[in-house]
Structures are given as C-alpha cells and as structure tokens.
Nucleic acid binder design. Structure first.
Length: 107
DNA sequence: AAGGTGACCGGCC
DNA sequence: TGGCCGGCCACCT
C-alpha cells in the first residue's frame, strides 16, 4: 500500500543501519527499478522534510557524498557519517566497500 | 499533454 | 578513478 515511489525509497533508507551506507542504485534495485536510480535521488530530495530518512547514509556508487551539496551546511552530511563511525575524506567515504550495506529486498 | 530536470549508473577510453 | 555520453524513470511547470 505504498502511497508512491518516494514512500518506498524512504522505507529502505530507514532500514539502513548506523555506521553503514548504501548507494542509490542498491535502493533502486531493492525497489525493483534498478534503472530508476535517479528517482531514488529525487525521492531523497523530498526526504528533506522527512526526519526519519537518513539521507546522509545514501551516497552514489563511488562512495562520494554527491548529495552533501543539498544538506543544510556543506559538511553536515560528512559530520553525520563520521558521527556514526564512517570515515569521510574529501566528500568521499573511506572503506566504502566495508561500510556498504545492501538493502533487504523484503517487501 | 509535452518538455525539462535530476542527490544516478554503466560502458568506454 | 577520471571524464564523456546515452539511457532511464518519476516529478514539476
């Protein structure tokens, strides 16, 4: 009973454990629309109003904080990640593979 | 209704 | 990884 595409994205994002991150493509695949990775980013844009959506845990496949530009400050996203134990240098996540979390495609 | 847009991804060099 | 290009899909005007 998903209201719309966004709700689905939020559902996945909320499942991201602390200290872990995932990519837009991974979420897209979890939703079944791997090709709509861009939509995931769009949903994240709307997630700005959602407090339950940790958008800072979502990065692109390179582990780059592509969306940091959309956060309040310029390094807010990085601060949040580092706060969870994730090392971020130059807007890029260190050990990206190590902190990468694959969303459960359980819907 | 049509067109533009975007926090992407994958392939290629 | 870095740069360029095409495809993709839902949302907004």
């Amino acid at each position: 009973m998903e209201e719309n595409f966004f709700e689905r994205v939020y559902a996945i994002a909320r499942q991201i454990p602390e200290g872990k991150v995932t990519s837009y493509g991974a979420i897209a695949k979890a939703l079944g629309t791997a090709r709509s990775a861009r939509m995931v980013g769009w949903a994240m844009n709307a997630s700005h109003n959602m407090e339950d959506v940790p958008a800072h845990r979502v990065v692109n496949r390179k582990g780059l904080l592509s969306g940091k530009h959309h956060f309040d400050g310029t390094n807010l996203m990085q601060q949040l990640l580092e706060n969870e134990g994730i090392i971020v240098v130059d807007n890029q996540i260190v050990d990206f593979e190590n902190v990468f979390w694959m969303p459960k495609m359980d819907l």
